[in-house]
Simulated assay, not measured.
Amino acid sequence: MAQDAGTLVPLVCKLVAQSLLLRERSSEDERFVIISLKDAGQALQQQAHAVHAQAACATQCLSSNAKR
C-alpha cells in the first residue's frame, strides 16, 4: 500500500497531536524522520489486533456454518 507524502503527513501530524506517535529526526541523516508508537499508540495497536482476530474468527465461524 503505497501512499504519497501529501496523504501521510497530515495523518502523521494528527496522530502526533493525539500522542499516539513520536516523530524524530534521524541523528545520522536529518532528511529522515523516525516515527514510532508511544505507549497510547501501542495500546491502540493491541486493541486493533484483538478486533482483527475477532473478525477473523467470526468470518471462519460464519463460513463454516454456511457450508452446513
Rank of each mutant, 00 (worst) to 15 (best):
V16T: 09
V16F: 04
V16R: 05
V16H: 03
V16N: 01
A17S: 02
A17E: 15
A17C: 00
A17G: 02
Q18L: 11
Q18M: 12
Q18A: 15
S19Q: 15
S19L: 07
L20A: 08
L20W: 03
L20P: 03
L21E: 02
L21D: 02
L21M: 03
L21W: 04
L22F: 09
L22N: 02
L22A: 08
L22M: 05
L22P: 00
R23H: 07
R23Y: 04
R23Q: 13
R23V: 09
R23N: 06
E24R: 15
E24K: 14
E24A: 08
R25E: 12
R25H: 01
R25G: 00
S26R: 04
S27M: 10
S27Q: 14
S27T: 06
E28N: 04
E28V: 03
D29A: 05
D29F: 09
D29I: 02
D29W: 01
D29C: 12
D29P: 00
E30A: 10
E30G: 07
E30T: 06
R31F: 00
R31W: 02
R31L: 05
R31G: 06
F32Y: 15
V33P: 01
V33S: 13
I34G: 01
I34K: 08
I34T: 12
I34S: 04
I34N: 03
I35A: 02
S36F: 02
S36N: 14
S36Y: 01
S36K: 12
S36Q: 07
L37G: 09
L37P: 01
L37W: 09
K38Q: 15
K38M: 14
K38T: 15
K38V: 09
D39K: 12
D39P: 06
A40S: 15
A40C: 09
G41Q: 04
G41A: 06
G41C: 06
Q42D: 03
A43W: 05
A43G: 07
A43R: 10
L44N: 01
L44R: 12
L44Y: 03
Q45C: 03
Q45S: 12
Q45M: 11
Q45I: 05
Q46D: 09
Q46S: 13
Q46C: 01
Q46E: 15
Q46T: 08
Q46N: 11
Q47E: 15
Q47D: 13
Q47G: 09
Q47P: 00
A48Y: 10
A48S: 14
H49S: 10
H49W: 06
H49R: 12
H49L: 13
A50R: 08
V51F: 14
V51W: 04
V51Y: 12
V51N: 00
V51D: 04
H52I: 09
H52W: 03
H52C: 06
H52L: 13
A53G: 06
A53T: 12
A53E: 11
A53S: 14
A53P: 00
A53Y: 00
A53N: 06
Q54E: 15
A55T: 08
A56K: 05
A56D: 03
C57A: 10
C57E: 11
C57R: 08
C57H: 09
C57Y: 10
C57F: 14
A58D: 15
A58V: 01
A58Y: 10
T59Q: 07
T59Y: 05
T59K: 07
T59D: 02
Q60A: 15
Q60P: 00
Q60N: 13
Q60H: 13
Q60W: 11
Q60C: 04
Q60Y: 11
